[in-house]
Computed example of a mutant assay.
Amino acid sequence: MAKHNDIGKISEILAMEWLVSKGYEFLEANFRYKHAEIDLIMKHKGIMIFVEVKFRSGTGYGYAEEFVDYRKRQLIIRAADHYIHAKDWHNDIRFDIVGVYKDKCGNVAYKHFEDAFY
């Protein structure tokens, strides 16, 4: 597996553990539908949350939320629609972005963008 794929998987695990520590319930990771993938599917306060995780080793090239473009959002929404239908979910949903930032010293920080798009 390529190094960037390893970093992506580790970032998803870190984000999932961080969200769980904030009271979120983990449902599924890496849900795929056609060409789309949802990194994390969580539940919190009766809301199903589809989470896109982005890793950054700094902010010199931009913030996590800037790397979820229109096409990526549309793919995630399409996959979420399929998931909702398959699970027969009739309650609220939300799309979040979690940025995982690691500095030169190895310190990890998180930035959570709730209801980032739809």
Score class of each variant (00 low, 15 high):
residue 4 H to E: 13
residue 67 F to P: 04
residue 66 E to N: 11
residue 20 V to R: 06
residue 31 F to R: 06
residue 30 N to E: 14
residue 34 K to L: 10
residue 18 W to H: 15
residue 103 D to L: 00
residue 56 R to T: 02
residue 14 L to Q: 05
residue 79 A to D: 06
residue 118 Y to D: 09
residue 113 F to L: 09
residue 17 E to L: 13
residue 18 W to N: 13
residue 80 A to Q: 10
residue 28 E to G: 00
residue 3 K to V: 12
residue 17 E to I: 00
residue 38 I to C: 02
residue 103 D to H: 00
residue 88 D to K: 13
residue 112 H to A: 00
residue 92 D to M: 08
residue 44 H to C: 08
residue 18 W to M: 12
residue 75 L to C: 01
residue 55 F to P: 01
residue 59 T to V: 11
residue 114 E to K: 15
residue 55 F to Q: 07
residue 3 K to W: 11
residue 68 V to Y: 05
residue 13 I to K: 15
residue 36 A to W: 03
residue 14 L to I: 01
residue 93 I to G: 02
residue 68 V to P: 05
residue 118 Y to C: 03
residue 4 H to N: 14
residue 17 E to M: 08
residue 72 K to H: 15
residue 79 A to H: 08
residue 64 A to G: 11
residue 26 F to Y: 14
residue 52 E to M: 02
residue 55 F to M: 04
residue 82 H to R: 15
residue 38 I to G: 01
residue 79 A to T: 06
residue 107 N to L: 05
residue 87 K to Y: 11
residue 20 V to E: 12
residue 115 D to W: 09
residue 59 T to R: 14
residue 48 M to A: 07
residue 92 D to W: 07
residue 75 L to R: 13
residue 26 F to S: 06
residue 57 S to N: 15
residue 42 M to F: 05
residue 118 Y to I: 09
residue 87 K to L: 12
residue 95 F to K: 06
residue 112 H to E: 03
residue 107 N to S: 08
residue 69 D to R: 13
residue 72 K to V: 12
residue 65 E to R: 13
residue 100 V to N: 02
residue 26 F to H: 13
residue 110 Y to K: 06
residue 72 K to L: 13
residue 68 V to L: 05
residue 101 Y to I: 02
residue 106 G to Q: 05
residue 86 A to V: 05
residue 43 K to E: 15
residue 97 I to L: 02
residue 4 H to I: 14
residue 39 D to A: 04
residue 82 H to F: 11
residue 91 N to G: 03
residue 107 N to I: 07
residue 49 I to M: 09
residue 111 K to D: 13
residue 64 A to H: 07
residue 86 A to T: 12
residue 6 D to I: 14
residue 117 F to L: 09
residue 30 N to P: 01
residue 45 K to P: 00
residue 78 R to N: 12
residue 10 I to R: 14
residue 118 Y to W: 11
residue 84 I to D: 04
residue 90 H to Q: 13
residue 98 V to M: 01
residue 11 S to R: 08
residue 24 Y to L: 02
residue 46 G to L: 04
residue 28 E to H: 08
residue 62 G to R: 07
residue 73 R to G: 03
residue 44 H to N: 13
residue 4 H to C: 03
residue 77 I to Y: 12
residue 94 R to H: 01
residue 92 D to G: 00
residue 9 K to S: 12
residue 72 K to F: 04
residue 26 F to T: 02
residue 107 N to P: 00
residue 9 K to N: 14
residue 5 N to L: 15
